[in-house]
């Protein structure tokens, strides 16, 4: 009798938890009318570091299988943009959507700005506030804030799941020096995806063979060259089977003669249909491998085009200047 009651209570409790979880999940779904086929949609993305405005409204759709090369002068926000995509940086405003789920949403700042402007104007002109209009905006703001806060709260924990879908390769490799190459690769699949050790190892070895580093499986990263490290870093990201791979200047910290081996691996990946976003200074790679090339400057996308058109017929003045210097 007593056991029965306990079981009943447990059942209702778990079901309540489950519905709560679903409710929280539902918060992140993009409304039907604005859904798209894009893997990642970025809308009006802004990022400020204090007073420094790094991203000034980025709009970008990335489809499955795209290889997007982002080029641009240093300090224009390329890396920041990439880091925003997997939540290493929190944007100031805008939307990031992955597979029709909000990863980040903050549009209420515009409404807040609008309200502030209304107040200031009434102060300046001495006219009373147009209360109806103001209240309407305020109501809209409060509703949006509730929704966005719910998304933000949900993403506090869900961001880690999101990151499993978005692999990242760093300029400085960031391999874990206290683990062997194999452990570096199997750590995340084993601990996060709960893949069995044997399976994870087999997968890792297969990937290592693909990049030609199978014999380095049991050494520590400090014995490897830069190019080898970066190839391992790519394998490490691939082992999680991400939807999209982000490359943050993957060849910039390498000796010139090691750039080729890393680019070769990336090219193979692109040919296999991996979705990639690559911040790079390698114009050759952008020209040959990318399906789209994006030029960023001053925190906005100045030009976006297919590589052939992009390099032979640039339209933006800043891009012309940039290309004349690097090509």
């Amino acid at each position: 009798m007593k056991d029965n009651k306990v079981a009943q209570a447990l059942k209702t409790w778990t079901s309540r938890l489950r519905t709560k979880k679903e409710e929280r999940n539902a918060v992140c779904h993009v409304p039907e009318e604005t859904r798209s086929d894009a893997l990642i949609s970025v809308r009006n993305l802004y990022k400020k570091f204090g007073k420094l405005e790094v991203l000034n409204g980025i709009n970008l759709d990335i489809n499955k299988g795209d290889v997007v090369a982002i080029i641009g002068p240093s300090g224009c926000g390329k890396s920041t943009f990439l880091r925003c995509l997997n939540g290493l940086e929190t944007p100031s405003a805008g939307e990031i959507i992955l597979e029709n789920e909000y990863v980040f949403k903050n549009e209420r700042v515009y409404l807040k700005r609008k309200m502030r402007a209304m107040k200031e104007e009434s102060k300046k002109t001495g006219k009373p506030l147009p209360m109806d209009e103001f209240n309407a905006v305020n109501e809209e703001y409060l509703a949006l804030r509730k929704e966005e806060k719910a998304i933000a709260k949900y993403m506090e924990t869900a961001i880690n799941l999101h990151r499993q879908k978005v692999g990242m390769v760093f300029q400085q490799f960031n391999l874990f020096p206290h683990l062997t190459v194999l452990q570096n690769i199997t750590l995340a699949p084993m601990k996060l995806k709960k893949v069995g050790e044997e399976e994870a190892k087999a997968k890792a070895m297969e990937l290592l063979k693909k990049v030609g580093l199978a014999e380095k499986a049991n050494v520590y990263p400090s014995t490897l060259s830069g190019g080898q490290k970066q190839r391992i870093a790519i394998v490490r990201a691939l082992a999680m089977e991400p939807e999209v791979l982000l490359f943050d200047e993957p060849t910039s910290a390498l000796d010139p003669e090691m750039v080729g081996e890393v680019l070769k691996v990336m090219t193979e990946l692109a040919q296999e249909g991996m979705t990639m976003i690559v911040v790079t200074h390698e114009m050759g790679f952008a020209k040959e491998v990318a399906t789209r090339v994006i030029f960023m400057s001053d925190g906005v996308i100045k030009e976006e085009n297919a590589p052939q058109e992009f390099f032979t017929n640039p339209k933006d003045e800043r891009l012309k200047e940039f290309l004349s210097k690097v090509l």
Partner: peptide, 20 residues
């Protein structure tokens, strides 16, 4: 960068701290 790499793989802050 170690923390960033750990976080980027999907580990939580505490997990990254303990494991990496």
């Amino acid at each position: 960068g170690q923390m960033e790499a750990g976080r980027a793989m999907g580990f939580t802050w505490l997990e990254t701290m303990i494991r990496i």
